[in-house]
Design a protein around this nucleic acid. Sequence first.
DNA 1: GTCTATAAATCGATAGAC
DNA 2: GTCTATCGATTTATAGAC
Lengths: 195, 195
Amino acid sequence: MTRQESHAQTRDRLVATAHRLFLADGYNATSLERVAAEAGFSKGAVYSNFATKPELGLAVLDLIHAERAMSLAAAVGSGSVTEQVAGFARWAEENIGDVGWTALEVEFATSTRHLDGMRSELATRRRALTAMIAALIEDQADQQGLKLPMPAEDAAVQLLSLGIGLGVQRAFDPELPIRSLVDLLTRLIESATPR
Amino acid sequence: MTRQESHAQTRDRLVATAHRLFLADGYNATSLERVAAEAGFSKGAVYSNFATKPELGLAVLDLIHAERAMSLAAAVGSGSVTEQVAGFARWAEENIGDVGWTALEVEFATSTRHLDGMRSELATRRRALTAMIAALIEDQADQQGLKLPMPAEDAAVQLLSLGIGLGVQRAFDPELPIRSLVDLLTRLIESATPR
DNA sequence: GTCTATAAATCGATAGAC
DNA sequence: GTCTATCGATTTATAGAC
């Protein structure tokens, strides 16, 4: 194994461990020492791969976004409209709130937004995520031969924002149902017209 | 001034100062020492009024909720439907994102949700806030003689959740428009039927 | 590139004086 | 009830050995 491969593997292990610990205990409550130890390294390995703790946080954020993008696209699938909505409902049930992804993203974003350069880093990722959802919506609408009543980008903002709001509240009150997220998608589809 | 009045005044000053500093720099980044100093006290005064930092955070949260409830009800007013929507749009423009209330609430909630008993404290406040919005919606619908297409509670959850999601994202990307929040309210009203 | 050791600073919380 | 002084614990980040 070359040095580059070894370096990349160390980095991946650190990110994966940080991902797990951040989800379990939160970003602020997890020390870099614990991340290093549970990954089988010492703190030196962390700082040779990431200049600061927020930088590690951004790497974890990217991992989460990649996972979510893949699982969402897979869950929605390419069947009938009814199947797609059902797939989205299942995905939302498993991904909004309970897992804690949303709460982690939001804790990280709100806790680090005052740091230099962090706002633009977060804004870039938000726009990429919104664009991904918008593209997914547009693809599906095309396949179904539907014309949406609003730009796909607007629909993506609404779905993402509602998902964030529900996810945050469900992090401390799991009784809150995610029903309204599926409602929003259903109303969006119902108000679409055949093209 | 009696001892009780003096005590209450000290507490109010501390909460008001914490409110200001938390909004400016965030909950995690603000130390109790700074709160005490800028309020004209020492840390001892803080700990004689609040057992822990999260307890002070909850007091600030209550202050924010009270402010928001009053300003929202006042902004919506009691005019025509058009005027009410316009009032809500103005209120949203001034309150979602820029001021930082949402980001603070969410930072506090996600950062302290692992602490003992904190989840139930936050859940209680979420339900009260949702009930307040639902009551406001129901009152306005009654006055306008409208019957909503869904329970007022569901509409309240959607509006609050979307507002939280937008507010969080606008905290680090102010270019994100709050348009979709007004859109949601408009669609809600449009789908209402005269009773 | 990673580890050990340590620096440097901060912060929440407590004890005792007044 | 508030202030002063301090504890104790933790954490981020760095310096130098290997």
